[in-house]
Amino acid sequence: MINIFVLNMALAVAWAALTGNITLSGLAVGFVLGSVCLYLTRSLYPGCDSYFRRAAKWTKLIVLFLRELVVSSLQVVWDVLTPTQKARPGIISVPLKVTREMDILLVTNLISLTPGTLSLDVTEDNSTLYIHAMFADDPDEIRRQITEGIERWVIEATE
């Protein structure tokens, strides 16, 4: 069976070489064009539908994280620039639904990359994550946002 990801990478490299633009942006354009071509010819590759479903889920994770990144950045910038500080920092425990270590690593890193939050520790049994939040007025709301947001997106992308 053909590995569709490897074929997509080969198409990206071929595109970059043919256009003479062997840069990260050239490879990215080639990867997107290769994905479109492979999608249009997917009937030639049995079993490739799972590749496109997984790619769609990872794309969703990236887009939703970028949206979350922009929203939280604006919230932090607003709090820093305005005279009245609304920040009420605190440490919050968040029960985890993810069980695999790679998924936990991804969740904790995405939380740490989001301005205003920082992953502090995970319990030995990987059931609870401790985070520091800049706006910890409502810990239950923060738990809900993490559980229904980043954690759910990671579960969908990695299942």
Rank of each mutant, 00 (worst) to 15 (best):
S25K: 14
L27W: 03
A28F: 15
A28I: 10
A28V: 09
A28Y: 13
L33E: 05
L33Y: 00
L33A: 01
G34K: 04
G34I: 05
S35P: 02
V36R: 07
V36H: 06
V36P: 01
C37T: 13
C37P: 03
L38D: 04
L40P: 03
L40D: 05
R42C: 03
Y45V: 02
Y45S: 04
Y45M: 08
Y45C: 05
P46V: 08
P46G: 06
C48I: 06
C48K: 00
C48D: 03
S50D: 11
S50A: 11
S50N: 10
Y51G: 06
F52I: 01
R53T: 07
R53C: 00
R53P: 06
R54F: 00
A55M: 14
A55F: 15
A56Y: 11
A56W: 15
W58H: 12
W58I: 01
W58M: 10
T59R: 06
L61V: 10
L61S: 11
V63S: 08
V63M: 06
V63T: 07
L64S: 13
L64Q: 14
F65W: 10
E68S: 13
L69Q: 14
V70S: 05
V70D: 02
V70C: 08
V71A: 02
S72E: 12
S72T: 14
S73N: 15
S73L: 03
L74P: 02
L74T: 03
V76H: 12
W78S: 04
D79A: 05
D79M: 00
D79F: 04
V80Q: 08
T82Y: 05
P83V: 00
Q85I: 11
Q85K: 15
K86F: 09
K86I: 05
A87D: 02
R88A: 07
G90K: 00
I91N: 02
I92W: 08
P95G: 05
P95I: 09
L96K: 01
T99Q: 13
T99D: 01
R100Q: 15
E101H: 13
M102E: 15
D103M: 08
D103Y: 06
I104P: 04
L106H: 10
L106F: 03
L106Q: 06
L106M: 13
T108E: 03
N109C: 03
L110I: 08
L110D: 06
